[in-house]
């Protein structure tokens, strides 16, 4: 019950999808399975939120170091949830003005919109933007031309960095027409089209082989690691 049923579910679900891909008659089964999968993905979102709150509540109750920040996380989570689910500040849909709950939950001026615009956007986007600083220090401290491989990487990075700006055109703008291919912007195009495509293609084929092998192991019941220990 604990291991056999989930094993059968995984094998059946996978094969239904594969069969639906090749047999038109079974396409309907595939569509149904996909629909369930998409609905279940929301369950995974709820589970994720639940797990987050559980962890932070445990941190608060144990008064672990930094528990105050956990209170902030929990507070923000529930505030967003209540404001969003209650559609606070949302007007009805103009097509159905007599249905109070029919409006767009992210309508401009609404509560969830305010949270999104003034909290989610600046916080998430700045977090990612910070990488620009760290990549600069990495370039200064870690990028060393120690051997042929590292030198190739560095030179390529330099050419692409300059070639993907106007500097690529400007730096070698004096070259005669017959030598124009040496301009950094043209070299960048060549690097992307030939060596990059070759390297990435090899990686892509390698990953594909790995994914197919892993999928087959799951579908044939050889890999059962997702069932846990007991």
């Amino acid at each position: 019950m604990k291991r056999l049923v989930p094993l059968i579910i995984a094998i059946c679900a996978g094969f239904v999808l594969i069969i639906a891909n090749f047999i038109p008659y079974a396409q309907e089964w595939g569509s149904t399975a996909q629909e369930w999968f998409n609905i279940l993905a929301v369950g995974a979102m709820v589970l994720g939120g639940g797990n987050l709150i559980k962890l932070h509540l445990m941190k608060v109750s144990a008064k672990n170091k930094g528990w105050g920040y956990s209170v902030v996380t929990i507070g923000c989570f529930f505030a967003t949830l209540v404001i969003g689910l209650s559609k606070m500040g949302v007007h009805p849909n103009p097509i159905y003005p007599d249905y109070d709950w029919s409006g767009y939950y992210l309508e401009e001026g609404s509560g969830l919109w305010w949270i999104y615009e003034h909290m989610v956007v600046p916080l998430t986007s700045m977090m990612f933007a910070m990488l620009a600083f760290y990549v600069a220090t990495a370039a200064f401290r870690a990028f060393r031309a120690k051997n042929t491989e590292a030198t190739l990487l560095l030179v390529t990075a330099g050419i692409v960095l300059l070639g993907r700006t106007y500097a690529g055109v400007w730096l070698f703008g004096w070259l005669p027409e017959s030598m124009e291919w040496l301009r950094f912007d043209n070299l960048t195009v060549w690097i992307m089209d030939i060596p990059n495509t070759a390297g990435t293609r090899a990686i892509t084929i390698g990953i594909a082989l790995g994914v197919v092998a892993t999928s087959l192991r799951i579908l044939l019941g050889v890999d059962r690691s997702y069932l846990g220990q007991d």
Partner: peptide, 8 residues
């Protein structure tokens, strides 16, 4: 980008 190349 020029700064990055300079740093490298």
């Amino acid at each position: 980008h020029s700064l990055m190349v300079g740093l490298i």
